[in-house]
Structures are given as C-alpha cells and as structure tokens.
Design a binder for these strands. Structure first.
Length: 192
DNA sequence: GCTAGGATTTACT
DNA sequence: GTAAATCCTAGCA
C-alpha cells in the first residue's frame, strides 16, 4: 500500500520547551518518523524533574544527561537490558516517552525489523516502537528536529489519560496519554 | 567493588 | 498467569 502523504509543517524547538505533560498530550495524533518509517503517535507518557518515577529525579548522571539537554533532544535508553525506549526531552530534566504508534509509513522495513506481520504488534509498546523504527543508542542525544527524525501534523484527535505503566513510584500522576479508541495502544485505558 | 532493580517483551504452563 | 531473557546504572559498603 502507498504511504499516506504527510503534512509538511515545521515543529519549532519551542514546541518542546514547555511542560512535558502538555507536550505528551499534544503529541498524540502527530506523525513521528525515523527515516521512511513511522506512524501516528497514539500513546505517550510524561516524566518530569520532580517526579519520583523519572530517571532525572535524583539529578543529572551520565546515563540521563540527555534529559538535561536542549528541548527536542532524543533520550534513548536501554530497558531491562534488551529493549530501547525513545523519549523526547522537554524542559530540563523532563521528557516524553513514546509508547505506541499506529504504523502508517514504511510498512516493509518495520515488519522486517519486528519479525511480525500484525499491525497491532509492530509498534504497540515502547520497545516494539523503537525496534520498528530502528531506534537504538546511536540516536541518543540527537535532536528530533533534525534528520533522520521528522514530525508532522496529523488529524485532530480526542485524547484520554490514565496512570503510567510499569513504574513503582509516582503512580498517582495520570501522565499516560492515548488516542481515544485506538486499536494500537500498548494496553487499553480503563473505562471510567 | 557489589548488587538490586528496572519507563519490557515473549514464550510457556 | 508466570517467568525468563539480559545488562548496566545507580546507590551503598
């Protein structure tokens, strides 16, 4: 199938130079690409400087140094020794974790990298998303405003929120955001 | 130096 | 539902 045409709009650095919670919400529905592969952002999480669940909570260290860089910096870290997780830095010490995409561009390369054919298993989860897009430690510290990254406007969407996944602290902060009704979430949002 | 514990995924019972 | 895979950071001795 042919990849849908993208709306070419430049995301300024100021888009990320604000509260990570707002950025996490605003990213839902946009199209995130690495090279020719990517899709619609359907799930994100925000992590802030004063957030006990954030890598930056105890201050800057060699590992989390990118989180204290310029807004728009990619913070890529290894999770559980084997997966890569992709974050976009906002204000110093805060970032947005990309948790799931609806695959829309570069189907062939993404399914080859993932070894699966089901669109719901291609990029639904932070580790899966990174693998599908070819994200690894080499991209850590690069700016998402520059190639090979690109961001594009999408259609207006409804956003839902809930508790973040996989953390042992900061569970009271409802900083997980998702595209309402999406079939490509890593996990469903609890129905109120 | 040593070690507990992950912002996860997959396979298996 | 439960567990294994896998590594390296951060915190403490």
């Amino acid at each position: 199938m042919a990849d849908r045409q993208l709306m070419s709009v430049v995301f300024p650095a100021s888009f990320f130079d604000r509260d990570a919670v707002n950025v996490a919400r605003a990213l839902i529905g946009t199209v995130f690409m690495v090279g020719s592969a990517g899709g619609v952002v359907v799930e994100t999480e925000a992590y802030t400087r004063d957030d006990p669940a954030s890598h930056s909570f105890r201050g800057q260290t060699p590992r989390n140094a990118p989180m204290f860089g310029q807004p728009g910096t990619a913070y890529v870290y290894r999770s559980y020794g084997l997966h890569w997780c992709m974050n976009i830095v906002c204000q110093p010490g805060s970032a947005v974790l990309l948790r799931a995409l609806e695959p829309t561009h570069g189907w062939a390369v993404m399914t080859e990298r993932r070894g699966v054919d089901d669109p719901r298993l291609v990029a639904s989860g932070p580790g899966r998303l990174s693998q599908a897009l070819g994200i690894d430690g080499l991209l850590n510290g690069r700016s998402v405003l520059d190639l090979p990254f690109s961001l594009h406007l999408g259609e207006p969407v409804n956003v839902v929120s809930g508790a973040r996944i996989g953390i042992s602290r900061g569970m009271d902060r409802p900083w997980r955001f998702g595209l309402a009704g999406s079939r490509f979430l890593s996990r469903p949002f609890p129905v109120p």
